[in-house]
Write a protein that binds this DNA or RNA. Structure first.
Lengths: 336, 336
DNA sequence: CTGAAAGCGCTTACAG
DNA sequence: CTGAAAGCGCTTACAG
């Protein structure tokens, strides 16, 4: 048996298809009695309106698209979870697309989304100004997430990397540390750059005498290990290390441990992200927690606002998701 | 400017819409010259066919739906990644829906997917026989993933929990351990039950004299810690612990460490899953690695086969994804 | 090879 | 309140 259509319901309830449509949608313009008869017929026939037919005429898909760079790891799983939750709350479906190796693939994915979604959540390393100009349908509500670009032409949402980094530096300074090394993330990575900026700013404003000491890294554990070895060679030896992400902090701890250095007694260590394993390493890692799921939810909210108010100009709206300090053993704070 | 339609392209290329459709689809029934003119017009107008209109007539959405219980954690992120990769390879879009608190919510999600997808990947704790019978559109290709049920009526794909558990027991036996404790997962969880079965079978067949010693657990780290405390009280003391998942193994290690027991010198520990932090705990955890992404990809493949061959009866097809032994320090094996 | 026309399943003015 | 009809954008027999 093929799926029932609105015609079948109309026949079953002995009314016109127009009445079926009215009864099942806003419910107005139909007597309660007729409406009930129609509903009965619909459920008897297990009628589900054909989404494509409805989309064709209403111009609404009730679906939003999320274009992500990758789906690897906890970060994206949390991000999608947050998006999904907020989308569901609005009765919207979620179409995901990821792992576009190059700008062409991302553009193709963007094109394929056209007509399938009412709005777009976009996080892509390829999404620079030219790319967006070229590939983004002009009338499609879009929210940029953590892309390198956050110009006045688009809505954007990002993590408060800067503020989070400042919190960490203030924490380390408050513990009396003065020589605080920063391990960088990959060059060209905006999150990493913002974290470094926060580090430099906080140091300059709260402890002008403390030098900014920056070591190279690329977010990998290995690069953290190598940075840890460099830390050991520095004279005078640093009090503390602040890595631009947790994995490098963990790598750095391994290097210090291999050299017989005690953390946090001899050197404090801290990271950024609060990955799940941060609490399980030895010693547990002090870090900055980012509410990834909230990033997703808020982006979805922002997108929802745009979709609901197509005439309101929201371009240029830029919001930030808070980052919080999570104090554990590795920074050497007295834990209450 | 509204998006261009097929009519606009037809006008621009001075042909009928029928020719545009033919040129842009199979390309047959049109001279090369006309075809080229149409393609030029289409790209000039940035024409993208309206997905809903096409779906309405072709009855194909080129989208598959994934109904998942939750999106929390590494497992689902890997699963979606695998699904997405395989879907993309087939030119299919991916619609995800998750976190259905009860059977009603799951049923609603299922209904909402109807007409939006060409096939369904289903992993849900609510999906028992009655639920599927009641809510699954009969003509929609579906693959069940790790649901409690894998009857002859559906296609299914699952992890070889049983085989994985056997591999682990054989590994521990080969190392000379004879009193091997098993920490259970939550009751009612099929994965957990299969892992326990594998443990019992391997023990019975390879070391009939070794007693099966089973402690309660629920997959949480805390329950692993409690089980670890129970292990300490057992007399004679066990040689080894095999936890039904990694988090419990990690909790158990913490309990042993707190009691001053050395792992693996005094007791070997092992888990199941190979979560990312398994390699970072001290000592690194011997475990069973499950290729989650592959689980997703294979499910997608199986679904693709069904979609491509609607007449072939594939109900009852049941495939399994391999699980592999990953030897690290915690089981006490001599590492080469 | 090419075009006119029907039709996919729905919603929404427009009459009555 | 209710129904007949137009139309959303596409594809596909059917003629020519």
């Amino acid at each position: 048996m093929a799926a029932a259509t609105i015609k079948d319901v109309a026949r079953e309830a002995k009314v016109s298809v127009a009445s079926v449509s009215r009864a099942l949608n806003d419910g107005r313009g139909v007597t309660a009695e007729t409406s009930q008869r129609i509903r009965d017929a619909a459920s008897r026939l297990r009628y589900v309106p054909h989404a494509a037919a409805r989309t064709l005429i209403t111009r609404r898909t009730n679906t939003i698209g999320a274009l992500l760079p990758d789906l690897y790891g906890e970060f994206f799983s949390e991000l999608i979870r947050g998006i999904d939750l907020a989308a569901r709350a609005r009765g919207l479906h979620l179409l995901v697309s990821s792992s576009h190796d190059d700008a062409d693939a991302a553009a193709a994915a963007l094109r394929a989304m056209q007509g399938r979604v009412d709005g777009l959540l976009l996080m892509s390393p390829h999404a620079d100004a030219a790319f967006l100009q070229q590939n983004l349908p002009h009338d499609l509500p879009t929210v940029l997430m953590n892309t390198r670009l956050a110009g006045a032409d688009y809505c954007a949402l990002s993590v408060d990397n800067d503020g989070g980094a400042r919190l960490m530096v203030e924490h380390l300074l408050a513990l009396g540390h003065r020589r605080i090394v920063f391990i960088q993330g990959p060059s060209g990575n905006r999150d990493a750059a913002e974290r470094e900026l926060g580090y430099r700013e906080a140091l300059a404003s709260h402890s002008p005498d403390s030098p900014a000491i920056v070591l190279h890294g690329d977010f990998s554990e290995e690069s953290g290990y190598r940075a840890g070895q460099q830390v050991l060679a520095l004279r005078p030896r640093p009090d503390a290390v602040f890595a631009a992400n947790d994995m490098m902090a963990i790598g750095c701890m391994a290097a210090l441990r291999d050299a017989g250095i005690c953390v946090p007694e001899e050197i404090a260590i801290s990271g950024f992200d609060d990955v799940p394993m941060a609490r399980y390493v030895t010693p547990p890692l002090t870090t900055i927690q980012v509410h990834i799921a909230e990033l997703g939810s808020q982006a979805m909210e922002l997108l929802g606002e745009q979709i609901d108010n197509p005439d309101t100009v929201m371009a240029g709206t830029h919001r930030r998701v808070n980052a919080e300090l999570v104090v554990r053993v590795s920074s050497g704070a007295p834990l209450v």
